[in-house]
Amino acid sequence: MSETANLVGTRWLRRVDPAVATAFACIILLLAFGSLYSTNFLSPEYLLQQLKVASFLGVIATGMMLVILLGQIDLSVPWAVAVGGMMACAAAAYGTVGVYLAIPFGVACGAAIGLVNGIGVAYLRIPSMIITLATNAVAQGLMVVYTGGFSPRDSATAAMRFLATGSLLPGIPNAVVIWALIGFAAVFLLTRTTFGRSVYAIGNRERAAYLSGIDTRRIVMVAFILSGALSAFGGVLLAGYASKAAQAMGDAYLLPAIAAVVLGGTSILGGRGSYLGTIAGVILITVLQSILSVMQMPEAGRQVIYGILIVAMLLLYGRTPALR
């Protein structure tokens, strides 16, 4: 009897990705460390607040994870986020119809950026980091022309503010609910659909996936469109949170999004990783940010710690095989 239980136990343990377990352990360690500073760190209000802040990063990291699973990368996140926020606010300035269409319009603009990325990577076979850097620059240029170089004056709609700051269910912020819904959708997509299985297959070996009859180019393009749309949706939420969009609002999300996905055990080479890991990575990054700001660590130190942490985690999990 106990032997079977033992077997089940070890089998369960074997299924747990060590990276995901490490990430969750790091979160608990950080919270314990934080509680030495202030007991607030373990209060439900603080934890819920952290979850709310994490949900913006979580939405953006979901798209990033899809692309990284393919073995690609999306460096157009900063301006896809900004375009989402700014275009949603801009649409809101066009009367009642504009107010209704604000959120879809912002997300659609992000999807358009993703479409250009997707066509470039999938059909023109341009390396993803190059084409996404280029579309990032074009998106920035478009926004500079649109705003005339000033910070945009349009403000967020009531719906955007409600999504980001309100709470439909008592006690649970809407942003957390949205992240949970997007998370469920992502898990379903990755584990229960042919699209998801194809994403993993392409990440492992695109050549083999192509030979087994998968339309790899279409899958890659759709993944980039989803990434762009999710980044823009993150921007819409952020604009709702701050009640207006800002030029550089996305700059602070590129590195954390990549870091969250990688820290959660998703292989940067593609083909391996679970959404649970990404959740752990997002929460880990958010709690780390929170503790560094409570410790009044200046921005300089935060950047250095980020960089070192990512390199350290990559050295643990992300090494490519040696030349032989």
Partner: peptide, 23 residues
């Protein structure tokens, strides 16, 4: 020698260098 992907590794070291510059 660490056998990491140059894209992510240099994004991370870039953050370190920028942090030092800011310091």
């Amino acid at each position: 020698y660490g056998r990491l992907q140059p894209i992510v590794a240099t994004i991370a070291t870039g953050a370190i260098y920028f942090g030092i510059a800011l310091w």
